[in-house]
Structures are given as C-alpha cells and as structure tokens.
Design a protein around this nucleic acid. Structure first.
Lengths: 238, 238
DNA sequence: CCCTGGAAATTGGTCCTACCAATTAAACCA
DNA sequence: TGGTTTAATTGGTAGGACCAATTTCCAGGG
C-alpha cells in the first residue's frame, strides 16, 4: 500500500470529516457530530479532531461555537473537495466554465507577480515541469500532472503565501478542470505541441521579468482553453 | 486561568509569542523556545501553545518541524529598510499586503464579470450598501461592514458560483483586511468621502455594463489602498 | 586530530483524563 | 401555556504520559 508516512493525524481526520459530510449529505449550515463523537468514530484523540476542525475553520469551511458545536459554512459544502466531479455531463460545463473564470482571475495576476519575484529556484522548478510536459506526449495522465504542477509552481513563484495556499486548496479542482478541458483540446495530436508552446512562452516571460507579457499570455492561455471548450461543445463563445 | 474571558487563550498566547520575539530579537529563521517552555513561561497548557503556534504557522509567520522546534519564517521579500517596524509587525504587514494582492487578483475580474452580468437585484443590493456606506461616516465599524458587503455583492453579481463561494470563504479575511487598511487610511476625515466616491464610481461602471472601466477602477482602488498603506508604514511603494 | 556511528537528550505529535465555560435542551413551576 | 430554572451537551483548557523525529554529544576508530 502506498502511504505517505509524513501525513499527520489531523490531516487524515480532515479527509474523513470531508467524506463524512458528503456521505451523510450534511447541508450548508448543518451541524457535525461532537468532537468526542468524531474522535471515537475515527479512532483518534479529541486533540487531533480539534486540530482538524481548527484547520477547516481557518479555511472558512466551518464555524465552531463553544457549547454549540461545529457547523458547516453556509455555501461551502461543495468546496469540501468531492471526488465525484470527474463525470462530465452537460450540467457540468457551467462548472468548468466558472472554474476557468476563477482561474483567469488569479492565474493572470499570479503570472504577473511571478514575473516580478520568481527566484532561480522557482524558475528551475518550472523548467523541470516543462521538461516533463514535453515528455508526456504519449501519456495523457502524466501531461495533466505536469500541467497542474506548472500552474502550482507559477503560484509558488509569487512568494505570496495566501495565493500559494489558495492555489493548493484549489489544486484538486484545478486538476479536475485541466483534465476536463484537455479531453476536449487533445482530440488532435498537434494540440499537444501548441499547449507546450503556450506554457513555454509564459515561462519565458516570467523568466525575463516581463510581467505584462506574462499576464497577457496567461490571459490568452485561459481564453484559448475556454473558446476551444465552447467550440467543442457547440456553445457560443462568450 | 485568570484572564480576559472574551479572548481565547491561544489568541493571548499569540500576542505573548509576538512580544517574546521582539524582546529577544529573534531573527528570521531563528528558533523559538520549545512548546513546553512556552507553556510554563506563559502559565498556560501546552495545548494552548500548540494552537497558537498552529495559527501562526497557517499565516506563514513560522514553521514547525517535528523534533526540531518552531522557527520564524524567513522574510521572503525585502520589507526591511524600516528599522522601526518589528519582525512580527513586518509579518503582519506582509500578510495584509498578500491579502491585497489576492484581492486584486479576483476582485478586478469580479468587477469585470459583474459589469457583464449584474441583474437589477444585484444592482439594487449594491446601491443599498452604498447608502449604508454613506451613513457610516461616524461609525468606523459600520463602515467596515458596508465595505465588506460591497465587495461581497459585487462578487454575487458575477453569477459565478465558485467565485461567490470563494469570496464568502474569504469574507472573514477580507473583513480583517479592510479593517486593517482602514486603520491606516482614515487618519484624515476626507478619506471617507474619497473612499465612498471610489466605490460609487465602481458601481456606476458596473451598472452601465462597462466591464473595462469597472475592472480598471477596481484595480486602481486596490492600488490606492496599497500605496496608502505603504506610505503610512514608511515603506517604498511597489 | 578528525570523523563517524550510535546512544542519549530534546522537541514536536498524539493520546488520555479531568474539569471549566458556554450553549442547548429538558424539566419545572406559576 | 409560557417563562424560568435546571440539567445535559458541547467546545475550551489543563496537565500528564508516551511515541516519533530530530538534534546533540560522546566514545571509538581512522
């Protein structure tokens, strides 16, 4: 079994709480079991449960009231990381589109900031990912991972801890989004080369410290993904 | 424990840790006393110390290594140059600054999308908030709430559920951020009028469906807050 | 003298139990 | 029936114990 021995208990508890919320279909504003119940349920100490709840609270996923209990945030149930979003039906297109808008919002700014502040280590990390991306022409899943890593490393290069944290929080959704859009992009083979080139251009802009070009290229990158998605779905471009 | 019953213990511990870092002049990357020492030093349980350290870690102020200890974060960028600012104060400013960058990222895009899609209901809600903002000249806290609500309603007007959820998730941090920046902005009275005018202009751009002007005004709004923050802190504008 | 390997001390991670404080639900009386 | 009091529930804090990772230090060998 492939386990990460470095994972802390409270991190495992966070995942179990997320699963619990989904399986029991706890609505926004709904109350979670008490800390003592969660502890005995998961077979961990109340300490670890409290650390997990504290972490979830700090991310705005739930609210803890002394004497009252822990309550899911009003609109946040969906963002608690559900895995079942891999299926793509017509209803999910809107979701993919929303995610692309969200990505445009902070990835464009991230590219700009990265061009300002990327360290040699940041640039090296991005270059390595580009290498993996080039090698991933035959392996779609490898390409998705490299794509995700590229955008995560760009976020890292901003040196903005909040933005980095947010990006990691959204990493699963980002991966999901990239996988979904790639399914539509890569019907033809040469799309691979184009996509690689887009990422390479963004990297070069960041490396040269040209923040305006970096943000513009990222903006066009997102726009291109979006228009291709719409075209392949027979939707009007927005 | 005999203390202020309003604040949680771990919050008090956070302040005491900050004070400790100042008095002992702990450098970036420097190590803090062990959890046990801090607990006995402050007269609290190790639990509370751990909660405090955990909170500081989540904000990026320090790093916790099992078996190693707790280490102050390395300053990622040159905020130094001002000897009056303490290390922790610098970290707080960094946090405020990071939040402003994050806000620029998706509030600018949100303003643009809002200009495209705002419904009459959305516009009405924003107008009402503007009214509250105008009345809040004498009540700082009321002004903060109205300011927060303004930006939340702009996000609502995007019709992008992911963006709306994200904004609500970040609402607490947004409120903290606005409160912190207003502390520096509103040393003079006429700042109130200017701030109101900025928000009003953004609203008018959204109402008229001018997405470019809306995003540009929002961008300038954030830039102005940021430059004023830096000026009041004696930092170089970026 | 260095350095290398491993034992011992240090330190964060987790668990347990107990009690305090705030909230909620139930019981009670008018 | 309605409001108040009481009890049960739940989160907050304390303190002790042990585990796991890291660091420190020292003896032994080069």
């Amino acid at each position: 079994m492939l386990v990460n021995p470095k994972k802390r208990t409270y991190e495992l508890v966070i995942e179990q709480i997320q699963t619990l919320c989904l399986e029991n279909n706890i609505p926004p504003g709904g109350r979670l079991p008490s800390e003592r119940d969660l502890a005995s349920l998961f077979g961990v100490s109340r300490n670890s449960v409290r650390e997990a709840l504290k972490g979830l609270e700090s991310k705005g996923f739930l609210e803890i009231r002394q004497g009252g209990g822990s309550f899911l945030a009003e609109t946040k149930r969906d963002i608690l990381g559900n895995e079942l979003g891999s299926r793509i039906d017509a209803a999910e297109i809107q979701y993919i589109d929303d995610m692309l808008e969200l990505r445009r919002a902070f990835e464009v700014e991230a590219a700009s900031l990265a061009a300002q502040r990327a360290t040699p280590e940041n640039l090296l990390a991005i270059r390595e990912v580009l290498g993996q991306m080039a090698l991933a022409a035959t392996d779609p899943e490898l390409g998705v991972q490299a794509d995700v890593d590229f955008h995560l490393h760009v976020a890292n290069a901003t040196q903005n801890q909040l933005l980095i944290d947010l990006m990691e929080t959204l990493a699963k959704r980002l991966e999901e989004n990239i996988r979904a859009t790639r399914r539509h992009r890569f019907t033809e083979a040469e799309r691979h080369q184009e996509t690689y080139h887009e990422h390479e251009e963004i990297y070069l802009a960041i490396e040269s410290g040209n923040r305006e070009r970096a943000s513009q290229l990222m903006n066009e990158h997102i726009s291109r993904i979006r228009s291709e998605l719409h075209r392949s779905m027979g939707l009007p471009p927005k």
